[in-house]
Design a protein around this nucleic acid. Structure first.
Lengths: 193, 193
DNA sequence: CCCCATCTAGACCGTTCGGTCCAATATCGG
DNA sequence: CCGATATTGGACCGAACGGTCTAGATGGGG
């Protein structure tokens, strides 16, 4: 009926994710977003509602981009333990080489917003729950396939890896975190032998 | 010569630490601090300079209160491994039962401020470095005393525990983190057997 | 080709931000 | 008891905050 949208809401959301990811919620102003997204302030509000809604949408998008990759990697047929190792190591590398010091968007949200924002807390919980579920399933399969000695506790192991991964993302934001993160990953993986 | 100070700067700093710890840097306004500290706005600036300086002082104080406890626990003569285990478990419990969802002030600072505040990054690094040093020393001693099988890597193990502890503090801020944190601690401690 | 919905840039809104200033007050030494 | 000195509450500052609104440009459907 009328004029078509001139900007790509998807690209705008991605740009918002980049900004929030790098600076966090409070430290990113609407002025920053207007400039970074390259769209009119009014369009921004018309499309996303408010700063908080935009942040939550960005968080959702982050999970949508991240979660399927995890799942795919750990669901491939055949040996599963190598995939778990690769995942943990890749996480460590990503944390160690995080030049922009962005960390993990979910981790950042857990620290900055989750304690006083129920909606943010729910999304964080959803991401962590997914990671735990996928990791646990992978380790259960590893056990069934004889890759993992019987008697281990797949869920507890998965939780341990998950907690460690959160910590890696935190250390990656501090100086000199690289060697620590790599050492931590290798030590933890010993538990999978 | 003149009027004496009417408020206790030490208590004020402690109150500031409590506020920053609970809400973070950006989400805590000077108005919040004035109210929470119970002192005049002017006195606050006269004593601490600025919001950022106050935060850094609070972080310093947090470390001063926390670090010696760690060191003392791990430096007692006799068996050292039980002390390490107790420390990790106590950390897990503190994270799991963190009703105020405060997490660790150092962790929070690492996530929120360290990436773009060099002074904050330095203090975070100092705390993490201290933790790593103390843990490593303890594990070296454990190895020397035959508590830990030879061939382990004390520093790498210490780093792994340190990273895990950061992760526990993050998970403690999310919902349903308690069981995860406890499982993670127990699994990690298996590496000390 | 023109109407109209939706876009745009940016002025504008009240509020809150971190920080400063000041007059009034309170407490010390003498 | 008084002068000197710090502290006090709160007014005040310019800037930045998140959010709204308007005027005009723009482009698709009839």
């Amino acid at each position: 009926m009328a004029r078509t949208k001139e900007f790509d809401p998807d690209a705008a959301l991605q740009a918002a994710l980049d900004l929030f990811w790098r600076r966090g919620y409070e430290a990113t102003s609407m002025a920053d977003l207007v400039e970074g997204l390259g769209i009119a302030r009014a369009s921004l509000y018309a499309t996303f509602g408010s700063k908080r809604e935009l942040y939550l949408r960005a968080l959702e998008r982050y999970s949508e981009q991240t979660d399927p990759v995890l799942l795919a990697e750990l669901s491939q047929p055949g040996p599963v333990l190598p995939a778990v190792r690769a995942l943990v190591r890749r996480y460590a590398e990503a944390s160690a080489e995080d030049g922009l010091k962005r960390g993990c968007f979910v981790t950042n949200t857990a620290v900055e917003l989750a304690p006083h924002d129920p909606a943010a807390a729910r999304r964080v919980e959803a991401s962590l729950g997914h990671l735990e579920t996928v990791l646990t399933a992978a380790l259960v399969r590893a056990e069934a396939q004889g890759e993992l000695p019987a008697g281990r506790e797949p869920r507890a192991l998965a939780r341990m890896l998950m907690v460690l991964m959160q910590g890696m993302r935190v250390l990656g934001k501090a100086t000199d975190g690289a060697a620590r993160v790599r050492d931590a990953a290798e030590q933890a993986l010993v538990l999978l032998d």
